[in-house]
Structure formats: C-alpha cells, structure tokens
Amino acid sequence: MSLKNRSILITGGAGFIGSHLVDALVREEPENLVVVDNLYLGKDENLADAQKLDPSLKIYHQDSSDYNAMKTLMEAEGIDVVFDLAVIPLPACLENPVWTFRHNTDLALCMAELARHDVFKTLIHFSSSEAYGSSIYAPMDEKHPLNGTTPYAASKAAADLMICSYCRTFGIEAAIIRPFNNYGPRQNERSYAGVIPLTIKRILGGEAPIIYGDGQQTRDYLYVTDTAQAAIDIYNTPQTRSKVLNVASGKEVSIEYIIGFIARYMGCKKNIVYQPERPGDVRRHIANVFLAQDMIGFKVKIDFDEGLARTIDWYVSYFNKNPDQ
C-alpha cells in the first residue's frame, strides 16, 4: 500500500506529533493533505515547514469531535485516510476530569462512526502508553492490562477498546498506534508543557530545575520523527488492521537522568529541586516493541542522548527568538 495520490486528513495536525507527521506525509506525495486542529494545543506555525513543501496543504480550525462538521468536510475533500491525533492532554484531566474523559472518547467515537458510515476508508488512531498505567511486568507488550491511573489514561484506553470493537462488529478498517513518551522540537511549551520543554524553559529563565517525586520514575522515550514514520509504515502494512502496536525505543530512562542531562548540557549551576509527586504519576514504563519490529520493521533511528541534545538546541533557539513564550 502507499499514500501516494491519496487524500489524507490529520486531526490534531498542528500539534507536536501531528505536525511532524504532516512533514513526513508531504514526502509521501499525497493528492490532497488536510489538517483539522482547533488549536487547543496546536499552533499554525508548527506547519510552516510543511506549507513550504506543499503550498496546497489545507488547514481547518474546528473540533474533530463534531460529527456533522467532519462529515461535510471529509466528503468535500474526498478523504481516503485519517490519522487521528486530536486529544485533550493528561494534565487537563487533573483540573477537569469529566470534560477530558468525555472529549477524548468523543473524538475517537466520531472517527469510528464516520468510518462505519464509509465516509472514509482507513483510520490510523493514536493511542497512548498511559493506557497501561504503571508496569505490572516489563517490558510491556500489547497484552499488558489497561490499568490507567488518571481519567486521561482511562479515556485513551476506552477509545482504543471502542475502535477495536468497531473493527470486530462493523468491519471498519483501522489500526492503533500506541506511542510511548515522545520528545523533540515543537512539543508544547505553554500550558500542559512536557517535562523536557518545561525544564529547558525554567533553566533559561534562571530557575532551578524541578523533579516531582524521587526522580526514579522511568519512561520510554522516542524521538518524534521515528513515531511519525512508524504511523506511515502502519498504514502501508495491511496486516496491522484491527491491531494495536506499541511504538517506542524499548529502553527506559529515569526522570532524574533526563533532568540531569538537560541541566548539564545547558550549564545550569542550580541544584535540582525535589517536590511532591503528582497524582496519578506512573512509576515505570518500558515497551516491548517486538510486534512493531515484526510487522512494520520498526527500528529506532535517533538514540535518546542525541535526540535530547537536538531538542535542547532547538528550544534554546526557539525561546531566544520568542522571549515572551
């Protein structure tokens, strides 16, 4: 299979992972490339590189959980394939759990229903490793129990189960990519910022880096361009339909290591400040990626230290150019 000459829609395409996926999709030479993003987290500037390469790229600012609006848009654009990344992030659920849970499940349900009614053919849905919760056994394969510890995690698990049920019950053509922790340029640095851009921003502002808890929590990080390519490879492999595939490095790294690396790389002289752990924080994450290796030939192209150095350099340049961010 190939995305060449296809009409493709990316929900959440102005966000962190979404914009890198758009960059990668431009190189696939689709007939039509459409982004839908309500800019809750995304930014139009994230698509600047893609627009230079493909001036015909279309961007719609709307909520992708609105069934009628999305149906009208998809039919007008002749959409064949949807990469579904629209999401309300984890930190939002600590402030507004009901809205976060409902909206994340509504986003996925809308895509599943549109596929059921043949508005488009193929759905590649983005899940989250948060659906697993803390590791019961390691490494965590796709059969690991779904034990999410936050309403966000529960919403992602529920969305996955729902899409799988639509595959079995209604025969929709869908695959689920379950990325572990992504990092790289363009990760949200504002509200709900990830630990890496937030730490870089603190150090640039003359503040001490912060670790919540003891810092021994582990994550499995993957550079964002590796995730984008994996999503394309999943589409190109028909055997992935009705399946969930972990996409990760298969290596765990502690939060303490990450913060320490950033501080050393940036020449920070201030001691790390330890604060109480955050509610629902998972203790250990490390992925088993054998299924992705077997089905799509998945390989990590950028190792963590190299990718983290690239990321720090990008953010230092970004914050220097945008001091008010």
Results as ranks from 00 to 15, higher is better:
127 S>P: 10
70 M>D: 00
168 R>D: 14
201 K>L: 00
113 E>F: 08
261 F>T: 06
241 R>Q: 10
224 V>F: 02
47 L>S: 06
185 P>A: 09
107 L>I: 11
145 P>T: 09
311 T>K: 03
30 P>R: 07
167 C>R: 04
266 M>R: 12
220 D>M: 04
80 D>C: 07
300 V>E: 03
97 P>L: 07
9 L>K: 02
180 F>E: 08
126 F>E: 10
155 S>I: 12
314 W>T: 11
248 A>M: 01
104 N>F: 03
65 S>E: 00
226 D>T: 04
214 D>Q: 00
163 I>N: 00
116 R>V: 08
279 P>N: 11
76 A>S: 03
288 N>Q: 09
162 M>F: 06
243 K>Q: 10
78 G>S: 11
154 A>F: 05
42 G>N: 11
142 E>T: 02
71 K>Q: 01
245 L>D: 06
73 L>W: 02
121 K>R: 12
163 I>K: 01
136 I>R: 13
274 Y>T: 06
87 V>Y: 09
233 D>N: 14
316 V>A: 04
173 E>K: 07
184 G>H: 04
109 L>Q: 03
232 I>G: 07
310 R>A: 05
99 W>R: 15
281 D>K: 14
141 D>Y: 02
322 N>H: 10
233 D>W: 07
228 A>D: 04
153 A>F: 02
251 K>G: 14
298 F>L: 03
274 Y>E: 01
98 V>S: 11
20 H>V: 12
281 D>Q: 13
264 R>P: 00
12 G>T: 10
62 Q>I: 07
239 Q>N: 15
318 Y>D: 07
132 Y>H: 05
77 E>C: 02
222 L>D: 03
206 G>T: 03
185 P>H: 05
8 I>E: 01
244 V>W: 05
85 L>A: 02
121 K>A: 07
239 Q>L: 10
319 F>Q: 04
19 S>I: 05
100 T>F: 11
95 E>W: 15
175 A>T: 08
197 P>C: 10
129 S>C: 14
199 T>N: 06
275 Q>G: 13
260 G>A: 07
113 E>R: 03
217 Q>H: 10
27 R>W: 15
137 Y>W: 13
28 E>C: 12
54 D>C: 14
273 V>W: 04
44 D>C: 09
211 I>P: 05
29 E>A: 15
64 S>M: 05
116 R>N: 14
3 L>V: 09
277 E>T: 13
48 A>T: 14
75 E>P: 05
29 E>Y: 15
117 H>V: 14
249 S>H: 06
316 V>I: 04
275 Q>I: 13
224 V>L: 08
165 S>Y: 00
11 T>I: 05
163 I>F: 00
112 A>K: 02
68 N>P: 04
219 R>P: 04
286 I>K: 15
112 A>C: 09
31 E>D: 13
284 R>W: 09
109 L>V: 06
171 G>Q: 01
77 E>P: 00
79 I>E: 07
216 Q>S: 12
108 A>W: 08
16 F>T: 10
127 S>E: 12
37 D>Q: 08
60 Y>V: 14
40 Y>G: 08
193 A>I: 06
91 P>I: 12
18 G>P: 02
57 L>N: 07
106 D>I: 02
92 A>C: 15
139 P>T: 13
192 Y>A: 11
